[in-house]
Amino acid sequence: MQTRRFETADEAKLLQASAAVIQDLGFSIDETAVPAGLIVASKDRDATEAGQVAGAIMMAVLFGARMPIDTKQKIRVSLVTRPSSSQNTAVRVTFQRIVWNDQNQLSKIEGLSDPAMYQQFFDKLSQSVFLTANEIQK
């Protein structure tokens, strides 16, 4: 689920295309190690969910109880490339997130394991590899 193989032996190019996708998705790059084929990036986003807010409002109205709601999250991604054969390079990506509530407490720390999410990421990466390859031909 987290790994795809690309038909290229050029690990550096693939890493560059990956960095571009990570930027496309609004992440900021935290850490890189090109010899190890590693990129670590993160982004801070809104974590408010309608259902949770609705629940909190109902609790407040019915019982006068104050339920904390999630407000912000840090989404982290690490991406690693490694040669898988003489013509192929494997890319492995992992997403995780840290969520804080409105009282500034940690409310969730979790790895993200939705296959559709990873599929979508690799679709974008394929597109990026293609865009990058096209630019080189120009």
């Binding site: 408010t48 309608a50 259902g51 997130r97 993200l112 979508q120």
Partner: peptide
């Protein structure tokens, strides 16, 4: 509001 904050992972 969003209904699932996990959609933010790939959102643009």
């Amino acid at each position: 509001c969003q209904t699932d904050s996990r959609t933010q992972v790939l959102d643009t």
